[in-house]
């Protein structure tokens, strides 16, 4: 009997140490995959009130304010976004719809209220600035982990949190706006705490920091993040508030109907 117990304990210890060893040996690919899902796919859907401050080196500030909704059709796969702008005044009422697909160009529509016009937008370039900010469309909608190779450089503390430091190199240099990226990925939440993007010359181009993380309905969320252009000094701060997950958002929200007649919660 005793022998059986010892044997069982021994077995459990072997198995669990193997599990720990496996956790420690997570590949760069696996870490980036988890981070990608934690960052871009939490919940089945989500909505938030977003304020973007675009600040030039000279301190001139511009503000973009919008309500955003996202719905996943499949985790890690197709997603839909709907954005309704409140500021600046000249774009108030403008709505933006994106159907994002893995491995092919997004479909994008823009609603121009003064003309009551829905305009289809060319989405060939993912590296275009999102509404003039330091974030690109790819930063907003996510870059698929399979597009790069990922290597764990080391593990260290970042902002008091244990993090993996990953180096990512694009598999196809033509399909990227960076030549190398370093990511500090939080071991607990899998969210990126910091990212450094290096340009083709190898110089530091942009620095991303997640300045505030909050657990909302069980999902860790970056409620404050900053992207700084290391070369121009221009930076953009994004603040998420009123974040809600799993609202059972209707598929119809992500359609032409909403562009022209958005639900009241967006327009108030």
């Amino acid at each position: 009997m005793k022998r059986t117990i010892y044997f069982t304990i021994g077995l459990v210890m072997i198995v669990s140490s193997a599990a720990i060893a496996r956790a420690q040996a997570l590949s760069g690919e696996e870490i980036m995959r988890r981070s990608y899902l934690a960052r871009y796919y939490p919940g089945e859907d989500m909505s938030a009130h977003v304020i973007m401050r675009l600040v030039s080196e000279g301190g001139q500030e511009r503000v973009r304010e919008f309500i955003m909704s996202r719905r996943n059709l499949k985790e890690g796969g197709e997603q839909r976004y709907f954005l309704y702008f409140h500021r600046p005044p000249d774009v108030r009422g403008t709505a933006f719809l994106v159907w994002a697909y893995p491995r092919r160009d997004d479909d994008r529509w823009l609603y121009v209220p003064a003309l009551n016009l829905i305009r289809r937008i060319a989405a060939s370039d993912k590296y275009e600035s999102f509404v003039g900010s330091d974030f690109t469309y790819e930063d907003v909608a996510g870059r698929e982990p399979e597009e790069d190779t990922h290597r764990v450089l080391r593990e260290e503390k970042a902002g008091g949190r244990d993090a993996y430091i990953l180096e990512s190199i694009p598999k196809n240099p033509g399909n990227s706006d960076f030549s190398r990226k370093l990511s500090w990925i939080d071991k607990t939440t899998w969210l990126p705490l910091k990212e450094e993007y290096y340009d083709r010359r190898g110089d530091l181009a942009r620095v991303f920091t997640a300045d505030e993380l909050k657990e909302i309905q069980g999902f860790w969320t970056m409620t404050k993040r900053v992207m700084k252009n290391a070369q121009s000094g221009h930076w953009t701060e994004v603040i998420f508030s009123e974040v809600r997950y799993n609202r059972k958002l209707s598929p119809e929200l992500f359609s032409e109907r909403s562009l022209r007649a958005p639900p009241a919660e967006f327009t108030k």
Binding site: R120, A122, A123, S124, D125, Y127, E128, S129
Partner: peptide, 10 residues
């Protein structure tokens, strides 16, 4: 036909 040739140039 509409296309973005390089970022921010359509």
């Amino acid at each position: 036909y509409q296309r973005e040739i390089i970022p921010d140039l359509t």
